[in-house]
Simulated scan of single mutants.
Amino acid sequence: MFEQNRHVRDVAVLDVLLLKAQQEYQETLNAWKQTSHVMKWFTEEEVPKPKGFLEKFYATRDEGRGPTHEGL
């Protein structure tokens, strides 16, 4: 997120971004986020965006994605 917002120079916007980052960090430490929430940060970097119709269609299929029902 820091790299995505490196062009921001407004101090008020930077304060809001830092507050949001601190909230994300605290929620993660308190285990309020589930595994899927945390892993979302890593899949955005690894998975390229689909370009064509079929690639978009295949990307929407639920192959291993989605909530797990562990402990239910």
Score class of each variant (00 low, 15 high):
59 A>C: 02
31 A>V: 11
7 H>L: 04
27 E>I: 02
52 G>P: 00
19 L>K: 04
59 A>Q: 11
31 A>Q: 14
24 E>T: 06
56 K>T: 07
64 G>K: 10
39 M>G: 00
21 A>S: 09
33 K>R: 09
12 A>W: 05
54 L>T: 12
31 A>K: 14
22 Q>N: 08
54 L>W: 13
59 A>P: 02
64 G>D: 12
26 Q>T: 10
61 R>V: 12
16 V>Q: 07
47 V>G: 03
56 K>G: 05
58 Y>S: 12
20 K>I: 03
31 A>F: 14
10 D>F: 02
25 Y>T: 07
57 F>P: 02
28 T>I: 08
35 T>I: 08
42 F>N: 04
18 L>W: 02
45 E>V: 12
20 K>W: 01
51 K>D: 09
41 W>K: 08
28 T>R: 04
17 L>P: 01
29 L>M: 13
50 P>M: 04
47 V>L: 13
14 L>M: 07
34 Q>G: 10
6 R>N: 09
43 T>G: 00
32 W>V: 01
55 E>H: 02
24 E>D: 09
21 A>K: 11
29 L>C: 14
12 A>K: 10
56 K>I: 04
38 V>P: 02
39 M>F: 06
62 D>A: 11
56 K>D: 03
60 T>M: 11
28 T>Y: 00
54 L>A: 06
24 E>F: 12
60 T>E: 15
16 V>K: 05
41 W>E: 12
33 K>M: 09
23 Q>A: 09
50 P>K: 00
59 A>E: 11
9 R>G: 01
29 L>E: 08
48 P>C: 03
21 A>Y: 04
6 R>C: 08
60 T>C: 07
59 A>G: 03
25 Y>F: 15
42 F>G: 02
12 A>I: 02
64 G>N: 10
27 E>M: 14
63 E>V: 15
63 E>L: 15
48 P>L: 03
8 V>N: 01
63 E>K: 13
46 E>R: 08
15 D>L: 05
25 Y>R: 11
57 F>C: 02
53 F>M: 07
27 E>G: 03
63 E>Y: 12
57 F>A: 10
10 D>Q: 06
8 V>I: 15
36 S>H: 09
45 E>L: 15
60 T>A: 13
60 T>Q: 13
37 H>E: 10
30 N>G: 01
36 S>K: 06
30 N>R: 15
39 M>K: 07
23 Q>G: 01
57 F>Q: 11
47 V>E: 13
11 V>Q: 14
54 L>S: 07
51 K>G: 12
44 E>T: 11
64 G>F: 05
30 N>A: 14
20 K>Q: 04
36 S>F: 03
26 Q>E: 10
56 K>R: 15
47 V>S: 07
44 E>V: 09
12 A>F: 10
31 A>L: 15
60 T>K: 15
51 K>A: 10
29 L>G: 10
27 E>C: 11
59 A>V: 04
5 N>A: 05
